Every structure is written in structure tokens, then in C-alpha cells.
Amino acid sequence: MLVNGFDVFFDFNAAGFLTSYLNIPISLGLYLSYKLIKRTRIWKPEEMDFVTGIPTLEETETPEVPPKNVWERIAGVIF
């Protein structure tokens, strides 16, 4: 968002500046109003959990289905 319309500074016009940089205060206003209305807090990086609830590779892996005919064998070799 910060470098979206950087070229407007070389050939400055108000319309280009507003369309390029108006989204920054709108985004900040929406974020801060959500935080104030819902009374949520900002988490510190040490408090975040990126491990719990993630399935292992064995849980997400699907078994390979053997080919049924010659065309599926050819497609299996190609792809």
C-alpha cells in the first residue's frame, strides 16, 4: 500500500495521490475501529501457536490408486 502510487510524486496531481493513498487511512480506521468495538487485543509473537492443530503428513496423505487401464498407466508415467 505504501509504494502503490509512488510515481504520483514525480508528476504530482491531487487526484492521483488520493486514489493511490486513500486506502491507507481507510484500512487503519477499519482495523482500529474493529479492535475498539470488539475489544480484542494484539497478540505478541511469543503468544502465537503455529503448531497445535496442524495435521501430520501421514494424516493428509492420500493412498496412491493403481492405474486401471493402459491410458491411466501412460498418464501416470507422463504426469
Rank of each mutant, 00 (worst) to 15 (best):
M48S: 04
N13T: 14
D49P: 02
G5P: 05
R73Q: 13
E72I: 02
K68G: 03
M1P: 08
F10Q: 15
A75V: 11
G76C: 07
V70I: 15
P67I: 00
F50E: 07
L32S: 08
F10I: 11
T56R: 11
V51F: 11
D11C: 04
F17K: 09
L2Q: 09
L28N: 03
I78H: 01
F79R: 11
N23M: 05
E61N: 03
F6A: 11
E58Q: 03
R41V: 04
T19W: 01
R39K: 14
D11T: 12
P63H: 03
F50R: 12
A15R: 14
G29D: 00
P55G: 02
E47H: 02
I26H: 01
L28W: 04
D49A: 03
I42W: 03
F9M: 06
W43G: 10
P67H: 10
E46R: 10
E58V: 01
S27M: 13
R73D: 01
Y34R: 02
E58H: 00
P66W: 00
S27K: 02
E47S: 08
D7F: 13
G5E: 05
N23I: 11
S27W: 02
S33H: 12
Y34E: 03
R73S: 09
V65K: 15
A15G: 07
L32H: 06
K35E: 04
G76F: 05
D11K: 15
P25W: 03
T19D: 05
K68M: 10
G16T: 05
P55F: 01
T56K: 03
S20F: 11
D49H: 02
I37W: 09
T40R: 04
I42T: 08
V77H: 13
L28Q: 00
W71Q: 12
R73N: 06
V65M: 07
I78L: 15
